[in-house]
Design a binder for these strands. Sequence first.
DNA 1: TTAAGTGCAAAATCTTTGCAAATGT
DNA 2: ACATTTGCAAAGATTTTGCACTTAA
Lengths: 148, 148
Amino acid sequence: MGQHKNKIDFEQLLQSHQLKRTNPRLRVLSMMSSRSSATSQPDLEAAMSDIDRVTLYRILAAFEEKGIIHKVFDLNGTANYAMCTADCNEGHHHDEHLHFSCTNCKNVYCLEELHLPAITVPEGFKTEGVTVYATGLCPKCSKRSAAK
Amino acid sequence: MGQHKNKIDFEQLLQSHQLKRTNPRLRVLSMMSSRSSATSQPDLEAAMSDIDRVTLYRILAAFEEKGIIHKVFDLNGTANYAMCTADCNEGHHHDEHLHFSCTNCKNVYCLEELHLPAITVPEGFKTEGVTVYATGLCPKCSKRSAAK
DNA sequence: TTAAGTGCAAAATCTTTGCAAATGT
DNA sequence: ACATTTGCAAAGATTTTGCACTTAA
């Protein structure tokens, strides 16, 4: 039962996915799991300028492929990545939760707590998964705009 | 009340948005409204290779800005554009409908008919709009895979 | 030791910008 | 005629690819 939640053992996480425990990977995992919103490649690049850009691309691709992180798009259309919970695995992702995109800071929050209502699609469509995107202001930005 | 539905008068549509009636624009409108799924820049580029790539970028940007089309991302993260219905206008889009992304052909369908269930977000978030993405097989692809 | 991962250089894409020529009103 | 819009050239940005060097197991 992959429970990559608080106090995650990153080394084990990598190991269990046949990925070597390297420094760049550990740092990426650490950054991603410490954040409440999803992380983009540019975010990573800015935060870890000593790691090669290409390496970051490859790490993200490998993690996504293995089901360690999943991709969501923010309002700019930039890919952002967030740690997967539970049942994501090699090639199969389940991010059937609410994604909240802040129109102000452009951050994307994965709100897993919420369960989604059932959706019915028209005849002919075969639904495999459903994701809900909400747009608006995240707590930080809504506080800020209320204050001032 | 912008009813850009069947038998649209594209010229009028452009005019009402203070856009000149040019050939590239009419062709883009024509292609987009003739399709059941959203259209990407690469789609347009392939279909109208005589129109400059840059012109297409600018047309899409202008249309989106004016609220004639709206943007959705497909499973590759590529922006796709679909005609807006009714109440989109200068800077404000309302695409609160179901977007269906086909995992096979990667097309995105805007299913406006469906009304979305209410979604509740956690304390602190201020929701402005909600969009639902479903993934799976579109009628065309599901038929195809069933047949053979 | 050796397969996997990283860094660097370079190619391939994709998107934006500036400006002169063309076009719509 | 005049303001837009287009096309082309070129700059910027983003993403991918190839390969030699390094590192975890």
